[in-house]
Amino acid sequence: MKESLLLSGSGGQGIISGGFMLAESAVESDKHATFLPEYGPEQRGGSAQCTVTISDTEILSPLVKKCSSLIAMNEQAYKKFYTNLKAGGLMIINANRVTSEVTRKDVKVLSIPCDDIAVEIGNPKIAIIIMIGALLGASGILSKEAFLSSIEQKFAEKKPEVMEMNAIALQKGIDIGKQSL
């Protein structure tokens, strides 16, 4: 098993921390993982992206042309990366912000209004957690418990409500991902 995940959106949407937590949960699940943030002047323009590769065996190239799953949190990210997804891959897009019509027929598409759901749960910041939940639900790449423990580490010093809200968001995403199977 080897999966390369491309997370993309804009600064503040939790792209980098979401990707980091995915890689961290993979390592804690005894898998191999690499996390490659996109860095450079472009980052200051507001876009954020990272590539996370998760594998049962040693990861050779962390630089991959095509990813097996793509999370696009806004229109700009969708337009920039929809061609980077392998045929048969999983595309998870933020239905609240991606306005283009999805033209690719050779990939599985999950369009989730994660901003709306996040506000319903109580905080717009947790939209990315819903998307990661959907990824876990649809791909089974990591267990819910592994990712939850990574969230716990990140928010250890915050109020318990924060952790609770993240757990609800993750479960909501997992349910959406599983329903799509």
Partner: peptide, 9 residues
């Protein structure tokens, strides 16, 4: 620089 920026276990 790419290996410098990558995270890995």
């Amino acid at each position: 620089g790419s290996l410098g920026a990558i995270m890995e276990q």
